[in-house]
């Protein structure tokens, strides 16, 4: 899980989705998650997933970095599906639900800086929660870098080796102990800095406005269509047996999106 890659893409990216208003993207993701919740047809959901991948490819998001994150929950979903699903179709549906929802939030996080995503949450939560959320974001990158340095130091000192698992585990946990002490000291330093700057509780994040209104509309239309499609596949008996066509349509959109992304490179 490379959180720094997510932040790099969110902050430095310049695609139409990056320029869309965070509020529109949050609404689109909420609609997509509603679509995932109501979906009972794996073929319809597969169509949505492929179309979403196509959209990400069309605006040239870093798919190579995004896909491992989006597929990561599939590992756990497969175990859950094998353990609890009553049949293979339900198992496929569970895995697809995991991947589609994860892909939706990963697209959001790769195109929107964390503070912008947290801003609406900060408005409805107690001050201590909203502020700690933003401090977590700041500390995360510092600790991720420190953790990488510590693990590199442990490896260089030959503390980690597959031949000596016990010694490796001891060295790794000692490094984590060091990281814990470092994180505690970091919180002390951050507190001192906040005091000097006159912090009285309540960080303010200015919401980012849209510079690509078409992308705002496109994101919300995509989310609405995904919800309409999964709802229709679930509740309209006339559509039973025809949802394989949405998978094909999704595949066509994926290919079109990838070609479009390559062409605009």
């Amino acid at each position: 899980m490379d959180v720094t890659a997510v932040d790099r893409s969110a902050v430095n990216g310049a695609s139409a989705l990056h320029r869309a208003a965070p509020r529109s993207k949050l609404v689109a993701v909420a609609l997509l998650i509603c679509a995932v919740v109501v979906a009972t047809d794996p073929l319809a959901l597969a169509g949505v997933t492929l179309a979403l991948l196509g959209a990400a490819g069309a605006v040239r998001l870093p798919l190579r970095q995004m896909l491992p994150l989006a597929l990561y929950p599939a590992l756990f979903a497969v175990i859950f599906a094998l353990a609890a699903a009553p049949g293979p179709v339900t198992a496929a549906l569970i895995v697809l639900k995991a991947v589609t929802a994860a892909l939706g939030v990963v697209v959001l996080m790769f195109t929107t800086p964390y503070p912008q995503v947290f801003a609406p949450i900060q408005r409805v939560t107690p001050t201590i929660v909203g502020d700690a959320l933003l401090m977590t974001y700041r500390s995360l990158f510092i600790l991720a870098e420190k953790s990488a340095d510590l693990m590199r130091a442990v490896r260089l000192r030959a503390g980690v080796s597959a031949r000596q698992p016990l010694r490796s585990a001891q060295a790794t946990t000692r490094a984590l102990g060091g990281l814990l002490l470092y994180s505690f000291d970091l919180s002390q330093r951050e507190y001192d800095i906040l005091r000097i700057r006159g912090y009285e509780g309540g960080f303010r994040v200015t919401p980012q406005s849209s510079t690509a209104p078409a992308a705002d509309v496109a994101a919300i239309v995509f989310g609405s269509l995904a919800l309409a499609l999964t709802l229709a596949a679930r509740s309209l008996p006339a559509l039973a047996g025809l949802t394989w066509m949405t998978t094909l349509a999704g595949l066509a959109l994926l290919i079109a999106g990838l070609l479009l992304g390559r062409r605009t490179r």
């Binding site: 959180v3 401090m135 953790s147 490796s168 990281l179 919180s187 005091r195």
Partner: peptide, 25 residues
């Protein structure tokens, strides 16, 4: 409460970082 904001942030970040750190091997 103001003192706890960076503390909760740092400890939450630590938990997040360790969740992305594998115990080798």
């Amino acid at each position: 409460a103001r003192r706890t904001v960076p503390l909760v942030g740092a400890v939450s970040a630590l938990v997040l970082v360790t969740m992305s750190t594998e115990i080798v091997p």
